[in-house]
Every structure is written in C-alpha cells, then in structure tokens.
C-alpha cells in the first residue's frame, strides 16, 4: 500500500478552526505542494502516508499561517505538522518547512467546472437508484431536495462517511415531523458507478437507514451512466477523477427548491443542523406565486 497512492482532491475545509486545542493530535506530513488558494488560505498537497491518520493522498489543507500560503509555490516539497482537533473533525497544517524548491507542478488538478447559478433550474438527468429503477433529477417537483455526492468505498471518515452520517441524522429528524418529511427528499449520488451498482447502493443505504428499507421512499441512493454523471457533476461544480483505482473528488451539497431551482450550495463548511434547517425552511416556504396569490385574495 506504501507505493499505492489514494489521490483524493477534496476541496473542503474540514471545519471551523477549533478555538480549543485541548486534546488535539499532531502528525508529521511530507509531500509536494500541487496548488494553493490564497482566498481560502489552503494548499493542496500530494503527501506520503501519515501513519495513524491517513494513507498517501492528494488533498487540500488549511494553513495556520497565511504568510506561508504566500510563500509556498506549486512544486515545492514540504514537511509540516498536521494538527487534528479533538474529535477529529477539523485539521490544519502548522510548522510548514519547504524542504526543496522545485517550481514544477507534476500533477495537474482539474479546474472546477462552472456550476449552475443559484436560481437556475436543475437539468433533467437520469439516474439509477438502489432498486435499479430510473429516477430523474427533475422528478422531485413539489419537494425540497437535498443532494450530495459520495462513493461507498471512500475510507476517509471526515468525507463521504461523514456526509452520509449527516444525511442519516437529517432523515431521522425529518421522519419525526411527517408533514415536513413528506415535502422533502434526500438524494445521495455515487460518482463510482463501476463499483456502486444498485445492490451495493442498497446495502450502503440500509446501513444508514437502520436497515429500514421504507426510508428509501424519502432518501434515494443513486448512480448514473458515466456520461450522465459527468454532466451532473459539471452542473453542480463537482470535481472528481479516477487515479490509481481510487477516486479523487471535491465535496458538494446542493439544496434544490420544490420548483426545481438551485437554492444553495455547500462545499466547504456546514453543520448538520444548518443543512436540516435550510431543507425544512425550503420545504415549508410558500412559492412566490403562492404568496402573490394569497396577497391578491386579501
């Protein structure tokens, strides 16, 4: 496994930098800088295995000192400390040292596609769900739809498993208020159609639905033909690509209105409560036309 790299580009901030560092853990990182983002104060590093924390992979890290982001350049080799906050849901780099200046970028990270803007209508893309049935992205009219992307083999607890766990919590909470539950839908799309076939997605979904298949009525797990999946990912600005038999990807959550229009994206920071509140609000909000009609009747 040492020579096998899992290239993961997860364009995400793990969380807000924890104010309290009590109980944080530190790991040594060695790798090569592939990209830097001054606006987000992060660098993307193709790093070696970090025993006890994560396998060799490519991913972005927040940087404690913004001056370092200015200083490092793609191609530089670095040594740094990964600080993992208590609970493991946040991490960042500290004590970054440039060990070799190369100035050459050896791996090209694809530029994110231009996503549909808020207010634009979702495209009509066909997906195959956990039951092998064809569903359509524009087939959830009348419901507030929360959509995200995962792949079931993702081994990183802070990425796909966390997303599915958050959706599971939202699903459990919504089920307690049947009125709102009926006006919402969750959709988890896998960008690994080769492995994530309908039976695999069904098994995966059941693990997050407490083995209650009735939950699929409000939460679909789906994938699509590679060409359709690419269209879908491009529409929502998701980056993913295969490398070394693994999938590198960004993170993306999209809220779609009952009128099938994009309401909001989350790609860097969010909480389960924030997602659930937004979904409930959208499900229960009256449309502009309904409000105008109600206003005219007064």
């Amino acid at each position: 496994m040492g020579s096998r790299k899992i290239f993961g580009v997860c364009l995400v901030f793990a969380c807000i930098i924890a104010a309290c560092k009590h109980g944080s853990r530190r790991y040594q990182l060695r790798g090569q800088v592939l990209d830097k983002n001054l606006a987000k104060n992060e660098i993307t590093v193709d790093h070696e295995s970090i025993p006890g924390f994560m396998p060799a992979m490519t991913m972005p890290y927040k940087v404690k000192d913004p001056a370092v982001v200015q200083e490092v350049e793609p191609g530089d080799k670095i040594a740094a400390e990964v600080v993992v906050a208590e609970g493991g849901n946040d991490n960042w780099l500290e004590n970054i040292r440039i060990t070799a200046k190369s100035g050459r970028n050896t791996t090209k990270v694809p530029a994110p596609p231009k996503a549909l803007a808020v207010g634009e209508r979702v495209p009509n893309i066909s997906l195959i769900n956990q039951d092998g049935k064809t569903i359509h992205l524009d087939g959830f009219k009348g419901k507030a739809l929360l959509l995200t992307f995962i792949y079931t083999r993702c081994p990183m607890p802070n990425f796909c498993p966390r997303l599915s766990s958050q959706f599971a919590k939202i699903h459990e909470d919504l089920a307690k208020t049947p009125g709102t539950y009926a006006k919402t839908h969750l959709l988890t799309v896998s960008f690994d159609p080769k492995y994530d076939t309908a039976p695999v997605l069904r098994r995966y979904g059941l693990a997050y639905l407490n083995n209650d298949a009735s939950g699929f009525a409000q939460w679909d797990f789906a994938s699509a033909a590679p060409a359709d999946l690419r269209k879908l990912a491009d529409a929502f600005g998701l980056v993913y690509f295969e490398q070394d038999n693994q999938i590198a990807h960004s993170m993306d959550i999209v809220l779609i209105s009952p009128q099938e229009k994009i309401v909001k994206y989350w790609a860097t920071e969010w909480t389960t409560a924030e997602l659930e509140d937004a979904l409930r609000t959208e499900a229960t909000a009256k449309s502009t036309r309904q409000m105008a009609r109600a206003g005219g009747m007064k």
Binding site: M1, G2, S49, P51, G52, F53, M54, P55, A56, E86, G87, G88, N89, P155, M156, P157, N158, P161, R162, S164, S165, Q166, A168, K169, A207, Y208
Partner: peptide, 23 residues
C-alpha cells in the same frame, strides 16, 4: 502494522468521529 496505520487506524483508533456509528 503499517497497513493498519495507513488504512484502519483513522477510524478504528479514533474517537468521537462525526459518524452515525463509531467504528
């Protein structure tokens, strides 16, 4: 041991992960 540290420890040796079920 190396493989465990690279692939398993991040879940099975961690605690309080934001997951539905703690490994």
């Amino acid at each position: 041991h190396e493989l465990f540290q690279q692939n398993c420890a991040m879940c099975h040796e961690a605690s309080n992960l934001d997951l539905k079920k703690q490994p």
